[in-house]
């Protein structure tokens, strides 16, 4: 490659989003005038894009070896990040998940995972104890409007939160806490992840629906974990991963979405949040969504379990 250091540096600055106006204009001028610069710029961007995909085809956290990431960083300061935009059609979901080698899967006890306990009251917002669903704006319902629960007789209807409502977040969410000390973590060795899976149903299928799964792991017990909870999620020693899923218009039926995060061994409390985001286009009317069949599992690289 015969590019000068300066030309390559201009490309880097632009692609890192830190180029000045003058630098952008200089690179643009080179790209317009010189086909070879254009070609090398595209080679650079295609390589950059390909590197982003390398990680996906080489999952390391559940692989039967200690992951570089978890050994490099203290376990209490594992990954905090936000992942946006996985497609959430059942076919694509299957395509993505088939890339990971699963060594051991242990289901964790989730309170009322199929929303069948209709006599149990729902907390408003984040629940402050284990064995409880909390909701922003939702209710348990039987089959209605032509929608059958995916599992059992009941499901959760996530009501839209109107744009006019003065709240910080218009995502209609449900929450639950798990006490990891009561889960079979001790029986596992090696690295492990936690996987949260939930199924959503959109009542409006003519436009894009967006769902959210967020998982937060804290190294304190549930009794104290929920105190000043949202500020804790910003701390470096708290694992917090959020993923958005886009359901394409026309994809009918229940859509299963799944999120995995590395779980530090010191974690005592797991909070998971499932939600339906308002439409990206504010001019569209929000509509209800249904949620059912929630599962949480531990995925381990090695196990002492029989």
């Amino acid at each position: 490659m015969n590019r000068t250091e300066h030309e390559l540096e201009l490309m880097r600055l632009y692609l890192d989003g830190v180029a000045s106006l003058e630098e952008t204009q200089e690179l643009e001028s080179l790209i317009v005038k010189d086909a070879s610069v254009r070609q090398d710029f595209l080679r650079y961007t295609h390589l950059d894009s390909a590197l982003a995909g390398v990680r996906i085809s080489q999952p390391s956290v559940v692989a039967p070896r200690r992951s570089v990431w978890l050994s490099w960083r203290p376990l209490t300061a594992a990954a905090a990040g936000i992942v946006f935009g996985m497609l959430c059609t059942s076919v694509v979901f299957g395509f993505v998940t088939q890339r990971t080698t699963l060594v051991e899967k242990v289901p964790l006890a989730v309170f009322d995972p199929g929303f069948e306990d209709v006599d149990h009251p729902l907390d408003g917002g984040l629940p402050n104890r284990v064995g409880q669903w909390g909701v922003d704006s939702a209710k348990l319902v039987p089959a209605e409007n032509g929608v059958q629960p995916l599992e059992g007789q009941y499901m959760m209807r996530l009501e839209p939160i109107p744009h006019e409502k003065l709240v910080k977040n218009h995502t209609s969410r449900v929450y639950q806490l798990l006490d990891l000390r009561a889960q079979p973590l001790e029986s596992l060795v090696g690295d492990f992840e936690v996987q949260v899976t939930a199924s959503f149903f959109a009542t409006r299928q003519d436009f894009n629906s967006r769902y959210l799964i967020r998982v937060i792991a804290l190294d304190e017990p549930p009794e104290t974990a929920t105190k000043e909870f949202w500020s804790k999620t910003e701390r470096d020693d708290v694992v917090s991963v959020s993923q958005r899923y886009d359901r394409m218009p026309g994809d009918g039926g229940w859509q299963t979405c799944s999120l995995r995060i590395p779980l530090p061994r010191v974690a005592k409390t797991l909070v998971f949040i499932l939600g339906a985001l308002p439409p990206g286009d504010a001019s569209l009317q929000s509509s209800a969504h249904y949620l059912d069949d929630v599962h949480v599992s531990l995925l381990a690289s090695e196990s002492k379990l029989p």
Partner: peptide, 24 residues
């Protein structure tokens, strides 16, 4: 497509977001 979008959109995160819109 991903490589092409990356050439048009500064920052990897933005190009990921655009690719989701492209797919939709």
């Amino acid at each position: 497509l991903r490589g092409f979008v990356r050439s048009l959109v500064p920052t990897l995160e933005d190009s990921r977001e655009v690719m989701q819109d492209v797919a939709a």
